[in-house]
Design a protein around this nucleic acid. Sequence first.
DNA 1: CTCCTCTACTCGTACATACATGTACTAGCT
DNA 2: AGCTAGTACATGTATGTACGAGTAGAGGAG
Lengths: 260, 260
Amino acid sequence: MTLALPGLDPVTDRPVFKQIADHLRDAIEQSRLEPGEKVPSEAKLMAHYGVARMTIRNALQILQTEGLTVAEHGRGVFVRSRPQVRRLASDRFARRHREQGKAAFIAETEGVGGKPTVDSIQISETEPPADVAQRLGLGERDKVLVRSRRYLINGHPVETAVSYLPASIARGTRIAEPDTGPGGIYARLEEMGHPLDHFDEEVRSRMPMREEVKALKLAPGTPVFHLVRTAYAEDGRAVEVCDTVMSSDAYVLSYQLPAQ
Amino acid sequence: MTLALPGLDPVTDRPVFKQIADHLRDAIEQSRLEPGEKVPSEAKLMAHYGVARMTIRNALQILQTEGLTVAEHGRGVFVRSRPQVRRLASDRFARRHREQGKAAFIAETEGVGGKPTVDSIQISETEPPADVAQRLGLGERDKVLVRSRRYLINGHPVETAVSYLPASIARGTRIAEPDTGPGGIYARLEEMGHPLDHFDEEVRSRMPMREEVKALKLAPGTPVFHLVRTAYAEDGRAVEVCDTVMSSDAYVLSYQLPAQ
DNA sequence: CTCCTCTACTCGTACATACATGTACTAGCT
DNA sequence: AGCTAGTACATGTATGTACGAGTAGAGGAG
């Protein structure tokens, strides 16, 4: 084993599998094991420490849960390499960007040299979930247009988004088409007499549901950002709610807060 | 067993332990198992499914990683109950709040009826980490005042914070005292001739480090918010960097974005 | 009635073993 | 040269066993 690992501490009462996890974690954090590099195989670790396989697997499980490693069946366990990170600025929906003719996601991704794609676009008209109806100020029987889609960078999925717009506004417009045209739905809303005033964005962090792991191809132990953004027109009316789930290791969110 | 669980599917190729995890997850999501309620013990699940204990433990491990359950040694495995959530508004550092004479954390917590505490306050003066020095626009040899502390609500820790201020500004002032006085360090900065203009806040989501699990008493499978906030004075100078780690299940962050 | 011990039950750690399944490389055949 | 089967090695799934350690309640001693 090229990697030098300490032996077990015979006096501590810290369980063996946690000690082994500590050793490997230290090695990763000190860059003695670099991203993409292979962690010693279970068999080698068993030999090195003189313990049972279960003990080694428990140790490796910890690192995986912490998001430090990924196991690949038949190949080995590898130190995770951090993917390209996108920084989302708080002015990303400002009108001056919209007027460039590109939707926010496309513009930002090309800005950092990535290749953006949009995927599995689905459009429907239904009754909204209760929280969405409340945010949009809709009544019992009001319907919404639902636009759901998935965003990818260089072919790798990073974000799913579902937009809800009052059907009374969006029905029959280009917003109900798969391709919403230059500047995206916000540009269309403004053209249609709903100039935007501001957005409220709620940010949560949590572990992903099973479907989200699949849709975003998340490695085990990766949390997600859950954003709910409400767009308000200048007349104070809420015109869109966008529910977004993002792979947390692909994003840094950046906001500006007033001090006055 | 009061809880009704389906049997195993003999034809699918989905592994047994994942099937069992699915059954329990469904039960939790459909509220057949409610928050705080006890999940059937390993022994009962072994008997019900007729499988080995390891298989059951693998299944339970999944739920724990997903943050759906917590195991308590000697008592059982319980469905996690969601704690009280604090909403952090984007105007939480606005001057009008500062002028009420309370620091942001105290004011907000009392606002929702919780009992705020601040804990393990440590103050020192050292050379800053490279990224902090860069954000503060400091040179090689410039020192910073470091204020680290932990916040608790009703005795339960929810957030750790470390503030860095240029020593040239903060040294010898009340900011270097454990009790910074009414309105906290931002009020002191403004009094001392550094009126604040705005804050930049970077938000990341990730799994906690080991020390963070301890400091915040995090349940396994709980991600954290990692915030880095920089305070800018009206003259454009960065006067504080605050590095905050928050238990993700205790917070919803809320921001207002401009549309224009 | 109070305190203590015992016991049953819970999850935690660790061992040993077996076979399934995916990957990568090699030797050998065509 | 190109394909194929075999082999070694990797992780995945599952079985069993044993003992440690924390919790909670029952029951007996004082």
